[in-house]
Amino acid sequence: MATIVRAVECDFPVFGYAASGAGAEGLVRDRVVSLLPVGSGARGGGRLPRVAYQLAQRASKGHTLRGGTGVVFGTAFGCLTETESFVSHMIREREATPKPRAFSSSVHNAIASFVALKLNARGECQTFVHGELSFAQALFAAVLAHRRSGESYWVGALDELPAHTFRALEQGVRGTSAAHEGGAVLFGGGSEDVSEAVAGSRLVRIELGRTQDVPAWFAGSDAKPELVLHAGPPAPEADFGSEPGCPVFHAPPDHPSSLATRTALALSILDGESSATLVGLSTRPSRLAVLGTTADGDAALFELRGFGA
């Protein structure tokens, strides 16, 4: 299938990030949030919304928040714990008493909305539900929104895997990835001058398309990234030919939101918080790319630069 291949150049500064679950192991402790959320400040939501809130808090730690801050999230399945609870009460146990909160928490946007509620974020609040590229769609939306608004955004993706869904995956429900949980949130955008920032990175390019578009995304580039972190099915070289023309660090996705955790790892390496040796580099890079591909042939690419680059 031919697709439109158009580079979307951008300048989206990222000031902070945090990750949770599988794929977050390479981050320093202060950037990692437990999948078992604790603390009174996170009460009132389902499991994923509470994790997302703590991730967002951690991502924006130390930054002054403004009233117009937006929340843009991706998720493949949303709050499955609450959805399973509602369905279980309604159908499987033939009970007429499913809990109303389980229903209201079962909507895909419950995660982003809980973050907005807890952090008083009155900007745009959007949720994209696009399988393993949900984070890519959310990040793209935030970049487009930022171009006009100049506001700050929490951008993230999160997925969980409770018991019933785990069994369904084992039975081969199409369109999902490996059986783990996790995700990440980054805080970025804004209109302040970032030239004097001493920490943080910026997103300079984002691409969304098909796997066959990937070589074109790298071809002709006079400034190749030093490494591509790839989350997707193994052995993409056959599809990509001689591109991307730089080392590729492959790792199959741990969960549907793996692209978010890979991005957090890339940011951590660019910032010098995590060791470059985690991805096979000997020195701290200044330019990394994160590539996501799916078994269905979709692809997304983010190019990130350290502020000092």
């Binding site: 009132g44 937006g70 929340v71 928490s105 909305s113 907005a116 008083n120 900007g123 745009e124 609040c125």
Partner: peptide, 8 residues
């Protein structure tokens, strides 16, 4: 678009 940030 905006968010109430008021109640779920």
């Amino acid at each position: 678009a905006a968010n109430d940030a008021n109640h779920i």
